[in-house]
Amino acid sequence: MSVDKATVAKIASLARIKMGDEELERMVPELNGILDWVEQLGEVECSGVEPMTAVIENHLRLREDVVDADPKTGGGRREDVLANAPAAEHGFFGVPKVIE
């Protein structure tokens, strides 16, 4: 499968990356080079093979059902959470207006 400029533009839009015409045109052969190359995976006989979900056998743990069990990842850290925000106002993240 190969991609054309319109497809790359659609992918870029899905990925929320603004790209001008020139950049899109440059990306087309680059992406096609990579996609042509990964295409060889189609040769591999995979019937009956499960796709990998965990690389090392492990089980998902449940944590104690306690509020703020770990103060590093618990709540009550609004100042810390907002400290690096480009626009924090009144204790919230500021964004451009999204509703009229």
Binding site: M27, L31, V44
Partner: peptide
């Protein structure tokens, strides 16, 4: 972009699932 493409509807099985099987 490559990642977005291989995960997108219609291509997910051909690329991503196949790659995880190869893995």
């Amino acid at each position: 972009l490559i990642g977005t493409y291989v995960l997108s509807a219609g291509f997910y099985d051909a690329y991503y699932t196949q790659a995880q099987k190869v893995r």
